[in-house]
Computed example of a mutant assay.
Amino acid sequence: TTGVTCLILSALSESWPAGISLDILSWFLASTLIASTLRFFLQIYAQGLTTPSHASVILMLEAVWAALMSAAWFGERMTLIQMTGCGLIFTALLINRWQWISRLWRQRRFAS
């Protein structure tokens, strides 16, 4: 739905090139068909193997990991607002999972 809506808005408001080279079209198809579908398949498959609470943690951290990895991959610096957003998401995760974290910490402390 989002793709179709953006395609319509793009056709109405932007100028399009007269032709698209075969190289660009093949990279576009590879990124949409292979990379995106493979990522979604792996994510859905892995989330099916875990509990709903762990799946929600995975989804919560997806934006944080995407921002950190893209900054590292492209060598860019994250702005203060981006770092603050990642920090807020991570803090919310810690607050949400605090009972589980403290129980795990106590078990490890008593085991040693």
Rank of each mutant, 00 (worst) to 15 (best):
R109Y: 03
M83Y: 08
C6N: 13
E76M: 10
Q82G: 02
L9A: 11
L93S: 04
E14M: 12
L12P: 06
P52I: 01
R39E: 12
I20E: 11
C86A: 07
Y45R: 15
M83K: 09
T5M: 14
L7W: 02
L29Y: 13
L42A: 09
L88I: 01
L88H: 05
A18V: 15
R77W: 07
E62C: 04
L25Y: 07
A63L: 13
L33E: 12
S102A: 07
I89M: 01
A63H: 08
A66W: 11
L88T: 02
I44V: 14
T37G: 04
G75M: 13
T91L: 12
A72K: 10
M78G: 01
I95K: 00
C6S: 12
R97T: 05
L49H: 07
T51Q: 09
A46H: 13
V4K: 07
Q82N: 01
M60Y: 04
S70G: 07
L12V: 00
R39N: 14
L22A: 12
Q43G: 10
P52H: 01
S112W: 10
R108T: 06
T37Y: 12
G19Y: 14
S31G: 11
S15H: 03
S15V: 15
A71Q: 03
S31V: 04
I95F: 00
P17A: 06
S102M: 04
S21P: 07
M60T: 08
W105K: 05
A67P: 01
S13I: 02
R97P: 03
G87P: 00
T91K: 01
G19C: 11
F90Q: 08
A46D: 10
I81Q: 08
A55M: 08
I58Y: 13
S112I: 15
L29M: 13
L93Q: 02
Q47E: 15
W105P: 00
L38W: 04
L33C: 15
L7D: 09
L22R: 15
L59E: 13
R39L: 12
A46C: 15
T32W: 09
S10V: 01
T1H: 09
G85K: 00
C86G: 10
S13H: 08
F28A: 05
D23H: 11
S21F: 06
S26C: 14
W100L: 12
V57R: 06
M78I: 05
A30S: 05
L94S: 05
A55E: 00
M83I: 14
T1I: 11
I58H: 10
T51K: 05
A71D: 02
M60G: 14
S31P: 09
G85R: 02
V4I: 04
L38T: 14
Q82S: 04
